[in-house]
Design a protein around this nucleic acid. Structure first.
Lengths: 207, 207
DNA sequence: GTCTATAGACTGATAGAC
DNA sequence: GTCTATCAGTCTATAGAC
């Protein structure tokens, strides 16, 4: 099996690339557990088993590492996204998408912690997170508009659409946080309850 | 006008008490902006205009200051809570309660940041936040059960009630975060949309 | 009650050997 | 590519003067 660059497990750049991936993986966990401010590059380096200087050699600075972490997070979420699922079906499959997210607690911790931290304009990930939310809301709005155009749901004003997609996002974020605080939280059932009720309301014009 | 201890603005303990309150107020802002890990007692002390040693004199340690901050946050939220409002009315008034929360951005930043940080069991506020959520969910469940008993909404199983109160909490938390990231977010309208639709579903047995 | 001074640990980052 | 050594700066916390 070969990787994306075409090198095999015996290839020349193999160890360097693997180390980089390994550092990013550990950084996701550490930043998720302690936040960006609370997670030091030394803690990450120790857990990987290298010196902190090696880590800086790879990423230039702590902020460079954060950038790599955010890109990796982006990559994985795009990978796990619903390509080809359109309109109302996109919303109907959110419960299972959310369930899949729970298989990687570290990634959810990272997103939750960084998103909260980055609400402060001074945070290095502020712009990234803002853009992330904008894009995510726009994607949801796209699918909802499509459902309207297809006649699957009653017409909605653009103001109503914005509220709807913000509510969906809020439920996913909020239930995720509650699951982190209490793993007995019924994530899938909760999201399903919300989506079913919401889709029902959209269909029957009860906004 | 006298304060709760009966001392006037000329009273002997006045400056000490005021300084303590002042430090806590600044700490709420700093912890809100940078998180607990990212907000140093020196930053707080500088902004107050005292040395960091003075701050430690008052609260013993950084964690002692955090405790004071969380207690103050508790005090203010209890103060702003809906005493005397029962059953369905409790939920119906959540949009305006949420709107009132927005008047103090620092407090919302504090809660959002600390709650996310404290999802890690090692965080000093972990137990506090867990308890906070448990209590909050229980309060909401109480009001929902009361609405059921009063015949205002159709019967719900305890499992359904838990999902419902978690969804309400998720919406409030999630919309709050989105407002921090984008102040143009229509907080009251969003929460109102959610509550109206939910109450409607409860009343007509569409769970 | 607040200060300065200081201890001791940790931070991100750089230089240079191998 | 990774290391050790080291830097200057910051962190929490304590001691002792006023």
């Amino acid at each position: 099996m070969s990787n994306s660059t075409g090198t095999t497990s015996r290839g020349p750049y193999r160890t360097g690339i693997r180390r980089r991936e390994q550092i990013v993986a550990v950084a996701i966990a550490v930043f998720g557990e302690n936040g960006y401010a609370g997670g030091s590059i030394r803690t990450i380096a120790d857990r990987v088993g290298v010196s902190h200087a090696t880590l800086l050699q790879h990423f230039g600075s702590k902020e460079g590492l954060l950038t790599a972490v955010l890109q990796e997070w982006d990559r994985r979420t795009v990978e796990a996204s619903l390509t080809g699922v359109l309109g109302l079906d996109y919303f109907r499959r959110l419960p299972e998408v959310m369930t899949a997210h729970l298989s990687n607690r570290g990634l959810l911790e990272l997103f939750t912690t960084i998103a909260a931290e980055a609400s402060s304009p001074a945070h290095p990930a502020h712009v990234f997170i803002q853009r992330r939310y904008t894009d995510n809301l726009e994607t949801l709005a796209l699918h909802l508009r499509q459902a309207v155009d297809a006649g699957d749901v009653a017409p909605l004003t653009s103001a109503e659409i914005e509220i709807e997609v913000r509510l969906v996002t809020a439920v996913l974020d909020g239930i995720g946080l509650q699951w982190l605080l209490d793993p007995s939280t019924k994530v899938s059932a909760s999201v399903e309850t919300y989506i079913n009720r919401t889709v029902e309301a959209w269909r029957s014009n009860r906004h």
